Amino acid sequence: MPAVFRVHPAGHDHGKRGDDGTEWGAAVANGVERRRVGPSLPAPVFAVVLVGVTVALIALDALTGTAVRLLPLLVFLPSIAAGLGSVRQTAFASVWVVLTMAGTFAYVGSEPGDNILAAGFAALFGVAAVLSCRYRVHREEEVYRLRSAAAALQRQIVRPLPLATGDVLVDGLYQPVEEDAMVGGDLYEVAASPYGTRVLIADVQGKGLPAIGTALAVLGAFREAAYREATLLGVVDAMESAVARHNMGATRSGEPERLVTALVLDIDRDPEVEAVNCGHLTPYVIHDGRARQAPLGEPAVPLGLAGLAPEPRHAIRFAFPRGATLLMCTDGVTEARDPGGAFYPLGARLGGWARRPPARLAETLGADVRRFTGTAPRDDIAILTVSRTREIS
């Protein structure tokens, strides 16, 4: 399961220990984590299975009174280890089977030729199992490197939290999904402009590297327009144009067009916040022990659909008093489901945490989502908390 983390710059090495106590190294080289795939079977479990199966087969042979009839089934033990364990475990299982069969045959007085033949077949199956395990481990390492490369690229898209400007402090957490092609396009950014602090949270439709390409286009447009455009609608228009251009290029290369839900805020020393909601989740205002959704009305169309909208987007202002916290998130939170299929009740949960400090609120919410689902997440999760850093005029 991918771990929840605050986004840190690449370039640090981290030593980790698996659940079974075995260590595996993780080095970040050029932003890409590489690891040695450790044993899939904990050592105690491996030992119990190996010895237990061997003793069971020998005991069955002794109890039934037949001469070494079931013991040759041990040749399948290395194959099982090859599919579940490490190369070292598979090699150990192979040697164990050869020695056990040879010793048992010698003890019961089998013909030397039969003894050698049985041990030879066991050794041959063992070698095949070791080679098969080496191939499996190599493939697992390749898949992991590909997943980590995509995740490392995504970590370079979003800056480390917390982010502070003269107006606000933005904290939170980001949880990427690194399974198969499930690296998504959640993103956020904070820009201190001459017109106030602009805050963006967005979610690109789809998964994988193409979604990250769209995210890069949105982020590039936001970072430039946030400083250039005097109005928040001007910033959103620049992002809309960037998504439209990116979709045109994607269509020519055979990729599908992608939409982007986005929420853009403009926060200064005014007690109100200006917002443009492009199909994103409505933020929550947490103040005086209460959590309520900001009164933004119906959201406008996502980025990439402005040409099809019946009317242009518009900005809305809502109260953001001193001491309040804004909470924004992506649909990885609201679309999380419990084992029974029920969606995560974000509004109801926030009411019980309304008096928690912003720094703890995002972590509490992320942990609660994981407990609610009871399984690995199937979508990226981004949660931002926004609080003021200075008095309101």
Rank of each mutant, 00 (worst) to 15 (best):
V177Q: 05
E178T: 14
G279D: 02
E140M: 14
D20F: 10
A315F: 07
D379L: 04
R147Y: 08
F5Q: 15
G120T: 11
L163S: 07
H138T: 14
R292P: 01
G332V: 03
V45D: 00
A306P: 00
Y188P: 04
T66H: 14
A29P: 12
T389L: 10
A315S: 08
T66Q: 15
Y195V: 05
N30P: 09
A262Y: 00
G166L: 07
V53I: 12
A191C: 11
E189R: 12
N115G: 14
T261V: 08
A93R: 07
S79C: 12
K16P: 13
E111A: 14
T214E: 07
E178G: 11
V204H: 06
E142V: 13
A122L: 01
V127K: 01
A226K: 00
V7T: 12
V183D: 00
L153H: 10
Y227H: 14
P339C: 02
V333K: 04
V190H: 05
L305A: 11
E23G: 14
V55E: 01
D180H: 11
P78Q: 06
A119E: 02
P283F: 11
A250N: 06
L99A: 15
R134T: 09
D237F: 06
I383G: 01
V32R: 03
Q175L: 14
A129D: 04
V236T: 06
A192M: 10
V264W: 02
L200H: 01
A244W: 05
L296D: 08
A230K: 12
S253M: 11
G341W: 02
A262C: 04
R69I: 11
D380A: 04
A56C: 09
A150V: 09
R390M: 07
P302I: 00
F76T: 11
M182D: 09
V4P: 12
N277P: 06
D288C: 09
